[in-house]
């Protein structure tokens, strides 16, 4: 838990995309796009099977930040570009670093990769109450 946030501080978190993760997320979010829940459809459109919802992976990123701050209300901004699909059984690693602290806010850079080092999200930034 980060009580006092200082520039250069780093943190890391990891999540495994288990076999049924996209099903859980579809139910909770209401996004039942077949690319997320129907392996046959996913293969037909060239994805090689189902892919995880980008917003679920972004939920993992948000969790890494709020676990680190210890207070979910301190997360004020979050943004990313979805670079490449996240697949079932991927392991997603989030590596955060505080870039600057000013005016009561800290700007974080987040690197979001899968097990082979490929960035699944790019330009991932968050802002938290410092």
């Amino acid at each position: 838990m980060a009580d006092k946030i200082t520039k250069g501080t780093t943190f890391q978190a990891q999540e495994v995309v288990d076999k049924y993760r996209a099903i859980y997320y579809a139910g909770a979010s209401g996004d039942f796009n077949p690319i997320h829940i129907d392996p046959e459809f996913g293969k037909m459109v060239g994805l090689g099977g189902v892919i995880l919802h980008g917003l679920c992976a972004l939920g993992f990123v948000a969790k890494s930040v709020t676990d680190w701050t210890g207070d979910p209300g301190r997360l004020k901004k979050l943004r990313c570009r979805f670079a490449t699909p996240v697949h079932i059984e991927d392991t997603i690693t989030v590596a955060g670093e505080v870039l600057e602290v000013s005016g009561g806010r800290a700007v974080l850079n987040l690197k979001v990769t899968r097990q082979n080092g490929e960035e699944v999200e790019k330009n991932v930034m968050a802002e938290v109450e410092a």
């Binding site: 999540e15 993760r21 909770a28 679920c56 948000a62 969790k63 676990d67 207070d71």
Partner: peptide, 14 residues
């Protein structure tokens, strides 16, 4: 609770 479970986030606030 359902959404928190889906994103594997069991933070007690939720």
């Amino acid at each position: 609770r359902e959404y928190a479970k889906a994103i594997k986030n069991q933070d007690p606030h939720f």
